[in-house]
Design a protein around this nucleic acid. Sequence first.
DNA 1: TAATTTGGTTTATTTTATAAACTAGTTTAC
DNA 2: GTAAACTAGTTTATAAAATAAACCAAATTA
Lengths: 94, 94
Amino acid sequence: MFKDLDPLLHSQLRLAIMSLLISLESAEFTFIKEKTNSTAGNLSVQLDKLSEAGYLMIDKSFRAKKPLTTCRITKKGIKAFEEYVAVLKQYINK
Amino acid sequence: MFKDLDPLLHSQLRLAIMSLLISLESAEFTFIKEKTNSTAGNLSVQLDKLSEAGYLMIDKSFRAKKPLTTCRITKKGIKAFEEYVAVLKQYINK
DNA sequence: TAATTTGGTTTATTTTATAAACTAGTTTAC
DNA sequence: GTAAACTAGTTTATAAAATAAACCAAATTA
């Protein structure tokens, strides 16, 4: 009746991150932090989890001598997000 | 940008319970247990939480000498569910 | 009358989310 | 030039949540 919701995506912050990245394709740490209104610590942890699951790719470099973390959603991430949305609809539509 | 998701509803089992009750208006413990594929212990705990939040009403009686727990969604519960769905759409629609 | 089943509740454990503390390098103010 | 503060994070600790395991009472069955 109710299919399981991907626990990796069923988390407010991680879902917000994926929601951002699915339309932007690429975003910086500080940008995501602002848009999701999260703390750096929490964001860092959740980005790592998404990255370890292969849902996004994280690139660490430097810009103007400051660390620059850039995130990009993967095909796997897009698929997981779409599947999550499809399953979620079982719960909320009717 | 991203409004907070009601933490009480952003839980797979509690969301499934509410999803069932919003269309059924009333259901028995064992029925919900079957439909949500949950364990009795977990269901009992989550029903209590929803009940304490005023999202549903629980009636305990007996039938054929066996305990009978019946649940019914409240107006507050319906409103909370609808609001949750509305907020969720911010995350999943584009 | 002892074991099993039904319909749960309570308690304990594991997992998760989140916040607090910390780090490394940079810029600014004195 | 050095102490204080800022940027951009990471790591660790704590709080909260989900879940499972253990338990209970009454009834039924063997």
